[in-house]
């Protein structure tokens, strides 16, 4: 039984999975064909070995750099800054954005011990001052929560001296909701209606 206990314990560590669900999943696997388990284990091993953050933008990839950074048809003059890598997918699915991304890996939340040093802000600053990339615009697409707004304000103060256009997604994204859960049309509209920030109001 202890192998099943081990598996259940591991499954329980996943977000949204309680003891009951973990047990159900574990027994489902045990009952099913062995090949299924091996395939799942193989997929997990692949993720562990091959997936890593893109050294340029922080998006997850298996190649040296991610498919967005690699794609020569992308507009290199715009960088869209998001909190988490899964939000890249949400924006990509709209099919309306052709620029690059930058993944912060979270948002400012000193209450949880997350300060600027815990986010990939240095990487972003390097990119905007890199003569080869030389972006003209940075879109701050952090969430519309108190923390997401503060993160945007903070980035704006650091980006301001670089003399580029700094924009924020248009209102329309419900306050406090993660991009992940917002439908594609709303995201596309928020992107299209993005406005310049920092005109004396912040």
């Amino acid at each position: 039984m202890s192998a099943i206990d081990d598996l259940t314990r591991e499954l329980r560590r996943l977000p949204g999975i309680g003891t009951k669900t973990a047990l159900r999943l574990a027994f489902h696997m045990v009952k099913g064909p062995k090949e299924d388990i091996h395939r799942l284990a193989g997929a997990l091993a692949q993720v562990a070995e091959r997936i890593h953050p893109c050294p340029r933008c922080g998006n997850y990839c298996s190649a040296e750099v991610c498919s967005v950074c690699r794609d020569p048809s992308r507009d290199r003059s715009v960088i869209c800054v998001v909190e988490e890598a899964y939000e890249v997918g949400a924006i990509e699915r709209t099919g309306r954005y052709g620029g690059l991304f930058h993944v912060l890996g979270g948002r400012l939340s000193p209450l949880d011990g997350v300060g600027p040093g815990q986010l990939d802000i240095d990487g972003l600053l390097e990119r905007v001052s890199d003569p080869e990339e030389k972006p003209k615009e940075v879109i701050l697409a952090t969430n519309a929560s108190v923390e997401g707004e503060a993160t945007a304000v903070y980035l704006e103060t650091l980006l301001r001296p670089h003399g580029l256009r700094i924009t924020r997604l248009a209102r329309g994204i419900p306050v406090g909701s993660d991009l992940e859960y917002v439908d594609g049309t709303t995201i596309a509209e928020a992107l299209a209606g993005r406005r310049e920030v920092g005109d004396g109001s912040a």
Binding site: S109, P110, L111, G115, P116, E149, A150, V153, L158
Partner: peptide, 22 residues
């Protein structure tokens, strides 16, 4: 609460000031 946590962590003017808008 976030601004106070930033103050306690000695986060500096920009990281504390980021909470002022909210």
């Amino acid at each position: 609460a976030q601004r106070n946590a930033a103050l306690k962590a000695n986060a500096g003017a920009a990281a504390v000031g980021a909470w002022d808008q909210g």
